[in-house]
């Protein structure tokens, strides 16, 4: 049951992009076409799940050694090296997947939803009905993956809308990012309808 609450909360209610403002750069940058949006979200989901797994374990080590102040530095290094590693491994074992995700991988290091979710998982308490507690390892990974799914959902919906926008007549000053932002605002409003669901 806790897993279901966690997933619904991460995908819909507290959508990383539309309610937490994480990962806005790729959300605005690579959402021109549905196919690229799917590729990017796939790559993010991949990196996010692995990096949360690793950073969760590392956080236990940091706490044990009482050097929590190294958190930011350690986490970003882990994410940066993981992205590199994923890139190298993918290239070796699955060239086709690498072709699909490859160009997005370098962009992920500076995607703040990866670092954001990694920090959130180890620092925030989550509510389950009457209970509030920190996530355990399995929940953390599930939560991170669900966040990535939420990111993907927002990206794909948004890309679909933007493909339509391309065809419509937009006033000159609105062209490009401004109209995308206004659209995202309306989409965020729609997602607010999910609040109170869990």
């Amino acid at each position: 049951m806790e897993y279901i609450i966690l997933i619904i909360s991460a995908v819909f209610v507290n959508n990383v992009v539309l309610s937490q403002f994480l990962g806005i750069c790729p959300f605005l940058g690579v959402s021109n076409k549905v196919s690229t949006a799917i590729g990017m979200s796939g790559a993010v989901a991949f990196v996010m799940a692995i990096s949360t797994l690793v950073t969760y374990l590392l956080q236990q080590l940091l706490v044990a050694l009482q050097i929590e102040f190294m958190q930011t530095l350690v986490f970003i290094l882990v994410i940066a090296s993981l992205v590199q590693m994923v890139e190298i491994v993918l290239k070796k074992i699955s060239p086709s997947l690498y072709q699909a995700l490859g160009i997005f991988l370098p962009l992920i290091t500076t995607n703040c939803c990866v670092l954001g979710v990694a920090i959130m998982v180890v620092s925030k308490e989550f509510t389950f009905g009457d209970q509030v507690h920190m996530l355990n390892l399995a929940q953390s990974v599930v939560y991170a993956t669900a966040c990535a799914v939420g990111f993907g959902l927002a990206m794909v919906i948004f890309a679909g809308i933007r493909e339509q926008l391309e065809l419509s007549e937009v006033p000159k000053a609105f062209r490009g990012v401004p109209i995308a932002l206004v659209t995202a605002g309306i989409l965020a409003m729609a997602f607010m309808g999910f609040s109170g669901l869990v």
Partner: peptide, 22 residues
């Protein structure tokens, strides 16, 4: 209230950008 919440952030920034462009 919408301007304090998430949607308002997107919309306000969008319109500010329009003003900047213009």
């Amino acid at each position: 209230l919408a301007f304090v919440l998430a949607p308002g952030a997107f919309i306000a920034l969008g319109y500010l950008m329009v003003l900047y462009n213009k």
